[in-house]
Design a protein around this nucleic acid. Structure first.
Lengths: 358, 358
DNA sequence: TCATCAATTGTTATCGATATCATATTGTCG
DNA sequence: CGACAATATGATATCGATAACAATTGATGA
């Protein structure tokens, strides 16, 4: 499709926008503005014939509804705000997609923000979002500043916290226990005979899900009488593939006899595996490595990576669905927790029978 | 920070929102609403003392500015709309991040949408976005429906097309020639002695950047007298890592003597390499493989992948910057093209001296 | 035939902020 | 000391749609 569809001299330069209002469409058709407004929604009572004439006029004039005006009088902004730690992380972008999909055809639009794993940034973003008067808000995790909590309470809109099970939920929760998921992975691998466990994660508590995974690891290793686990902290979360590679090097320098290393995410696990391979170690023959999150890469790379599969997309989808429920049921829904599934996915990188790596 | 900061009985249930307006803040302080409005911006003339009192009241009352009301009267929505094909693709999420960063502290907020590589979806999204009256809009690519073009022209807001060099730009462009970038890669590899070129890409033209890369490949192979290239089309764009693996299998079945395979993106290249490794072939000893996009994975995996590095983040950042310029200079800026850089990154996966893969 | 009701359309006030213009206050300088 | 500028603040109209209620029309039924 070329620009020629709009003749050069007819193209408006920026700034020349001709602002067309509903009233003008109404005059053109010969009805009142209110009738035009009604024609734009399905529930309203407008005769089919009138609606048809109006829509033709809308088409002919090129009118585009102005929602900012509408939301002021209807007191419904049509926005749902969502804050995720990072959009460059495919786990969270899957969640964002789940939310977008769930909001499809609801007339609600997602306002997305990135907190960079920072509670302060989250606070700023919450304020910025609330200025748009969203009808609901979806947060990642349960760690918020006091002011953020106050603003949310005052806003009086439903809040859904995701990806974790906060100790003290604000409202609704859609997520799972990161520490239990990691514990399950430890127990599963211990059941396969592994005894000397290492762990790779970030250095700070900014990434609360990371901290929970770490403590799930630590606790379980102790419980099984295999502790203490060999922990390497490397880099500010979210730790990258490259940092995973650097971390495994220090871990093996310090504890060369480690049998299996669990990583805070598949990305660091991948980096660790590649670094080992590069140094001539075979995974899992010489060292077993597992990740968390079941990123696409883990089922493709060689060796394939053992991990915890998390329903990222489902978290987003359900969070949005819970919000929609709350909005529809007159906002009376009680606070509730929706648990999302996770499962251990055993693959080559922790296979006790050694690697298929030639 | 726990919820206890907000006593249980003081917490508002959804729906109980107490709507606080500027007028009430004004009354509380003993000034007019207009003065409160002024206190919220930096340029306005309000005495420091008054502003301080107002901000204290805002804090005490927990007032949050309502931008939807403001944008109606000021006729500035504070939104910039951006449409990307997919947010799950790290190239585009980097671009989105670049835009977000560039809009930091400008008072403008990004409204993000995903087109799923579909011009029809893009058209729908453009309409949805325009209903929010964005002050500018950033698109990916130069392929739009006629109606989309008409709506954009009528909207009278600056438009920036990114990631490509459209034949017939709407307004401003920030991008590079995908076909020339791919051509450069072909020439570089031909310069290293490769003669039998293969190509892996998707089946349709939905992904216009993919098509451009393909035609750049084809054209250059012909020009060098090495044609025709061996092309495998597999899957609906964007093709996945897994499809890359499947594609390389069919390519090698059909043309077993292929020396080097270029892929539409690093993701498919990675899938192809892993599949080869799994089948006992060494990359690059038995076959060389290159990608496009320089994703994080390509510098980490083993062997590291030769690719074209694209300034994804910079595309987003500059696109937003161009838009800001246009908005500030009274929208008088002429249509212009901002070229963003790309470069060949030679790595192990096409190393003529054979693999370091043991 | 007239009351009643449903369907359709119109009228008016309003959402909550800001643009614009008016006014009050203070300060400056010849 | 008077005039004028600069600064600070207020009053009012308005942005463009929608809520709420009113009015009109035609149909139905006792």
């Amino acid at each position: 499709m070329k620009n020629e569809d709009v003749p050069k001299d007819k193209r408006l330069k920026p700034g020349e926008a001709q602002k067309l209002t509903m009233a003008e469409v109404a005059k053109y058709v010969g009805v009142s503005a209110m009738t035009v407004s009604r024609a734009f929604r399905q529930d309203a009572s407008v005769s089919e014939e009138t609606r048809k004439r109006i829509m033709e006029a809308v088409d002919a004039l090129g009118y585009v509804l102005d929602l900012s005006a509408g939301s002021l009088s209807s007191r419904r902004s049509g926005f749902i705000a969502a804050l995720v730690p990072s959009i460059n992380n495919s786990n969270f972008s899957d969640t964002a997609r789940g939310m977008t999909d769930a909001l499809q055809n609801t007339g609600l639009q997602l306002l997305l923000g990135y907190t960079d794993y920072s509670a302060e940034k989250e606070e700023e973003l919450i304020e910025a979002m609330l200025r748009r008067r969203p009808e609901g808000i979806i947060l990642t995790g349960g760690s918020h500043t006091a002011r953020a909590r106050r603003m949310l309470a005052k806003a009086g809109i439903p809040v859904v916290e995701t990806w974790e099970l906060p100790e003290d939920p604000i409202n609704q929760v859609v997520g799972f226990s990161n520490s239990e998921a990691m514990a399950l992975l430890v127990r599963t691998l211990a059941g396969q005979g592994y005894r000397k466990f290492g762990y790779i994660g970030g250095t700070t508590a900014r990434d609360t899900r990371g901290s929970q995974r770490r403590s799930g690891f630590q606790k379980t290793v102790e419980e099984l009488g295999l502790g203490p686990g060999r922990m390497i902290s490397f880099g500010v979360p979210p730790i990258t593939m490259e940092q995973g590679g650097q971390a495994i090097v220090s871990l093996l320098e310090r504890w060369p006899d480690t049998e299996v290393v669990l990583c805070v995410s598949d990305l660091s696990a991948f980096g660790a595996i590649m670094e080992c391979t590069r140094r001539g170690m075979k995974v899992p023959r010489d060292i077993a490595i597992a990740g968390f999150g079941d990123y696409e890469i883990s089922s493709i790379c060689h060796p394939r990576i053992t991990t915890i599969n998390v329903d990222c997309y489902g978290i987003g989808r359900q969070a949005a669905a819970r919000l929609l429920d709350t909005l529809h049921t007159g906002e009376a829904t009680g606070d509730e927790i929706t648990l999302t599934g996770y499962k251990v996915v055993l693959r080559e990188s922790t296979d006790r029978n050694g690697a298929p790596t030639d």
